[in-house]
Each structure stands twice: as C-alpha cells, then as structure tokens.
Design a protein around this nucleic acid. Structure first.
Lengths: 259, 259
DNA sequence: TCAAGACATGACGAATAGTCAGTTAGGAGC
DNA sequence: GCTCCTAACTGACTATTCGTCATGTCTTGA
C-alpha cells in the first residue's frame, strides 16, 4: 500500500468504477494495484509460485519494479492478496447459496453447488490457495493480510455452521451429544477440499478408476449426510439434479468474479 | 544417480546395511545419497520449498555441490525423492494394515489408523507431499521418478479397493449399480487428505470450533461408511477403540521409518 | 610406477528478489 | 506562466541461489 494516501485496510477487492470523493491519484493507485494482481494471477496459474516474476510483472504493467514494491512489500504479499480475493469470492458465493429458502439439507446442497462452481469458474483461485497453504510464506507476510484471510475462513465456516444449527432447530437433523455442529462442517470441508485437490493434482485420475470426480464427490458427501440421517435423505430427494440446476441458474454468470 | 555404476531404478529406499556383492564405491554412493535426503528433509521441514538450499546441503554433508548434482539432476528431483520415500512408507503401512484378519470394515478402520499414524509419526513426509502437489515442479523432474510416484499412488489405492471388493463379496456392503468401488475409496481418500491438510494448515483450528481434528475425522468417516450401510455399522462396533489399540500395538514403533 | 578413466571440486554464469539514490512530474503559491 | 517542493517513479545495483563445467585428485589395473 502507498503509505500516505490513507487507503482502507488491505482488502484487495478493487472496484474499477469511479468512486465519489476520490482524487485522480488515488484512483490510479487502485487501478494499478488491480492490474498487478491480474497479471500476477496469470503468472501463478501458468507456473505456480516460481512462475510469479516481479520483473515480468513490471514489464507487463509497464511500470518499474520499484513501483510494485510500493503496493506490496514482497512477492508473498501478492500471493496472499490473490488468496484473499479467492477466499472473498468464495465467501460471497457461499453466502448467496446459504440464503436460498429451502429445507436445510437442500440449502447445504446449494452451498455444495457453489463450491463446485467456484473451482470450475476460478481454477486459478483454487490453485493459489493451495500454494499458500503448502509453501511456508506466512512468516513473510503482514499480520493484517493474514488476519483478513483468517476472518474470511471463519466467516465461510460460520455460514455453513448456521445451516447445521437451523437443521437442528428444524428437527431435520439430530446430533449425538458428543458431536458438535462444527464437526459436521469440518467433515464437509474435508471431503470437498480433499476431493478437489486430488482431482486437480492426481495425474490420470481415470486410470485410477474415477470417471467423474464431481459426481463421486457428490455421492460421498451424500453418503456422509445420510450417515448423519440428515433429512431429506438422498433416496428421497434428487440432490444432483438440484445442484446442476442451481449451478446453471445462480452461479452461471461471472457475477462473482473478483474484478 | 551416478551414470555408470548401473544402479537399480531410482527408488530412494536406501538400506544402510552392508549388501552382498557390492563394491566399497557403490556403498559410499548409497550412503551419501541417504545423507543428502536426510539433510534435505530437515531443511524442507523447517522452511518448505524455499528452505531447501543446495549449498547448505553441500556444506552439511561435507561434499561439494557438484557431487550432489551427480546424485540428483536438480532440486526438484530431491523433493520428488523425498515424496517417494513418503509414499513408499505409507504404502507399507497400508499393506500391513490391510492384511489384518477381520471383518472388512474393521480392516478399513485399521488402514485408517495407519493413515493417522503416518502423519503423526512422519509429519515431514506429509509436508513434502503437500509441497510437491502444490508447486509446479513436475515438469522439471525425470519421468522415472514420476512414474514411480504414480505407481505408488495406484498401489495405495488398490490396497483399499481390494477391501471394498472383499466387502462386496462378503455381503457386508452393497453398492448401487451406479457407484463403483473406486468411488468409495475416492471418498475415503478425500476425507482423510482434506482433514489432514486443514489440520496442518489452518491456524487456530480450535477457534473455529474443532477440538480434536482426529476425532472429528473419525466421526465423519464413520458417518460416510454408515451412509453406505457398510456392516458393522458404527453403532454396533467401537471403531475408535479399535483404531487406538491398533495404532499403539502395530504402528507404535518406528518400524516403518524409511531409513 | 604409471596411465587412464572415474569422481570431486568450487569458481563461475544466469536468473531473480529486493533496495535506494537520483530523477521526474504535477500541484501550490505568487 | 514561472518556480519551488515533494510525492512518486525509475532502473541500476546488491545479494542470493540454482546449476554448469574446466580443472584437479584419486583409484585401479597393467
């Protein structure tokens, strides 16, 4: 961030439209930051962490390297900014999904559809998130950005936890005393994350015997919720059909794209 | 690999014990390779991909850098060798687990215990695997090592697929026509991988509301298998107790350590 | 003992992250 | 329209580190 232009906290959601009461300078800064991230995202998508090259970013946005370092303290900050964009995008998709009026398990399936749509529409987001999780880049980044990321993660979790609570209240789900609502969400999170990572990183998935990772994921997730006896059970409701429809109707457009 | 000493294919399982019919030279090479990997593993554990430093490896094993490059074509090959060790270790643990004589779902729980023991005993293995999955290092590595890795993954999968087939044969599990045995394994793999990644990379897990990731993972995995109606159901068998016992009795010692 | 090949060495080239002294541009004051 | 001033921009430079290769050293067999 430029030090003396009193920018808002480092969210990287940058709106390119004019903003009232903003100097030309401030707008330039905002737009340039967006361009840096846009170029960076492409590079990461192509070549991962090593593909992200400060000199190349500089030449592509036609500013000098020093200018980039006025926006981001180092390479890792750029990665974390990209990750924050990703998490923010997903959070908005989840919140839109969770707001649908339907039985709790159907709402949950809608969130599942959002999760599917997220990786399909924004594969670079997913990839960046993986890189940040694996590489030891946390130490080099600013606490503000880290906190932003954690808060995003917590809110994402909370969105789903709320559905579990609603299900308990509605009597559509009953939990053993020893099992917390958060643990159910942990299970869903695990299975989605794991399946998507395998699908993206395991070479020759169909050699292993998996034709469609998405459909397998749906089956397994359904089996888990059936195990919890969350009504309506998968025999009584066509969740795959619902998910396909929701994905087409609500998550089709790029309305959730970060910029 | 040293080019002209006709070493076996590049498995990195190096046994330090004397081998019959081996020249002193060959043994030196073998031992040195093991030391390189051992030092490398520590560095990766400390600082991830960026923590792995060829010069530092050289100084620590007290050989020159050029010598390291006679063993491994580049940095990525070292990482992949470490990953192969990891996968190999896990495979041996899985095969030991799957061989136990018990009802199929209990055998599966034993494999689950092996998976838990693996990450607990060899956290560096797990970390290295994550790094290799996330970073784009595949292009730089030799096809032999990649094939070795894929074969390890396939055999790991096959070990569990076999249990599903046995369950079907024994009538302890019935699958819908549209669901393949491999898909069940994909579900288990997903949930374990996802949960372990979250547990290792999500800062402040208990802030999110998860006290014990292991116990939550067990619950969710059990719910999934209950959803499949794989007998004996979790109400009729104390799987957590079994897993704890197996972990203590069979996977306690470092008998599966790679070297 | 010596020749020849195998192996080890570390200085070097190349790539790239991050810095900073110097330059530029644009707004304020007159 | 001129001058001054400062924020912002620039790119040459340093530091780090991967990977190479010409050179040196050791081993082996005759």
């Amino acid at each position: 961030m430029i030090a003396n232009t009193s920018t808002p906290p480092p969210t990287t959601r940058v709106d390119l439209a004019e903003r009232p009461g903003e100097t030309r300078k401030q707008r330039e800064v905002r737009v340039r930051e967006a361009r840096i991230l846009s170029v960076a995202r492409e590079q990461v998508l192509e070549g991962g962490y090593l593909g992200l090259n400060m000199d190349r970013i500089a030449s592509e946005i036609e500013y000098s390297k020093g200018t980039i370092y006025q926006h981001f303290r180092n390479k890792e900050e750029i990665l974390l900014a990209l990750t924050n964009d990703a998490l923010d995008t997903r959070l908005r998709m989840f919140e839109a999904a969770a707001g649908h009026v339907a039985p709790t398990r159907v709402r949950l399936a809608t969130v599942g559809a959002a999760a599917e749509a997220f990786v399909e529409q924004f594969p670079y987001h997913f990839k960046v998130e993986q890189i940040v999780r694996a590489a030891s880049i946390w130490e080099k980044t600013s606490p503000e950005r880290r906190r932003l990321m954690e808060s995003c993660e917590r809110r994402c979790m909370a969105t789903v936890v709320r559905i579990v609570h609603d299900a308990l209240a509605a009597g559509e789900l009953t939990l053993d005393d020893r099992v917390q609502p958060e643990e159910v969400v942990f299970g869903l999170w695990s299975i989605y994350l794991g399946a998507q990572i395998i699908a993206h990183t395991s070479h020759a998935l169909n050699e292993i015997g998996i034709e469609s990772a998405v459909s397998s994921l749906r089956t397994n997730q359904s089996m888990m919720l059936d195990g919890y006896r969350w009504a309506p059970m998968s025999d009584d409701y066509d969740y795959p059909f619902h998910m396909d429809r929701v994905k087409q109707q609500c998550f089709r457009h790029e309305q959730f794209a970060p910029r």
